[in-house]
Design a protein around this nucleic acid. Structure first.
Lengths: 150, 150
DNA sequence: AGAATTACATAGCATGGCTATGTAATTTCG
DNA sequence: CGAAATTACATAGCCATGCTATGTAATTCT
């Protein structure tokens, strides 16, 4: 096999893998949204988790991190505030901006979501061997970095 | 470390991995939805792909496969029909049922989506070493089977 | 034959998306 | 310094993706 053919085969294999990844990630995401009792989809939990990890954050930064438009994030933050999960204060450094922080109730709601998600997925992980779990752990890291890069 | 503590540690690690997986899958899914020119979200492409692979399929079967309610699927199929990507015929075996088949235009639209998705993700895969790509390939299989099992 | 179940369309509503626009605050530039 | 430009976010209007409830027709069960 010539170099050019090898490159074509590798590119084809990478494309196949790319599509497999996109597909299986979407399937898992949808399956994970069927957690019993959970009424918000994944973006709400991702936002709460990011705020928990990073501290109070501006609306536009939250929107950028989740790859959504600012009004989309404004609406979500308004709903989360309505649930008592986040609070909003004017950013003292720039009075145009709003800082969104997570409340104790938000931390509790996020923890409950995490328990539900773990309850749904963890038993399946327990059935796997250590090599497969290692592959998944590495893949989770890689998927994150790929998602952040595109 | 006693057996019980080991089990607790393993369960905890599995929970952490479960949450990491759910999170990174959701992030990748969202990132993949930012493909230039793509106006439908992932469920449309998954449905088209499933119909392409399985042949004409009933609305309820499509809904079950995607973990959504039947009316959700009815609405999506109506829209896909409006795009000329699927056609619908009465199932001769049961006149209550509708069989949804993919059209040539649907095949073309699905192919275009796949090209876009591959263009977005494949360059990132090319930057990885073979072990990482192998981990991702294995993880894609595992995520699919986990999604199908929960 | 009638009752129960199945298959899917419709209705109404909520969440998650978008672009466009308006208002206030901040920064830039002449 | 003041006006213009830019930034930050809320609001408006619309669509896609979700749900439950309900209606209609067809099939199955008793």
């Amino acid at each position: 096999m010539s170099d050019l053919t090898q490159q074509s085969s590798a590119a084809h294999a990478h494309s196949e893998l790319a599509l497999d990844l996109v597909r299986s990630a979407a399937r898992l995401t949808r399956a994970a949204s069927t957690i019993s009792g959970v009424t918000y989809s994944s973006i709400a939990w991702r936002v709460l988790a990011d705020i928990e990890r990073e501290g109070a954050t501006r609306v536009t930064d939250l929107a950028a991190a989740q790859r959504v438009a600012q009004p989309t994030m404004t609406t979500l933050v308004q709903r989360l505030e309505g649930e008592g999960w986040v609070d909003r204060v004017v950013d003292p450094a720039d009075r145009r901006a709003t800082l969104v922080g997570i409340t104790a109730r938000g931390v509790a709601a996020l923890a409950a979501y995490r328990r539900g998600a773990a309850n749904l997925i963890t038993p399946k992980l327990a059935e796997l061997d250590a090599a497969d779990r290692a592959a998944l752990a590495r893949a989770a890291e890689l998927m994150l970095s790929i998602a952040n890069a595109v």
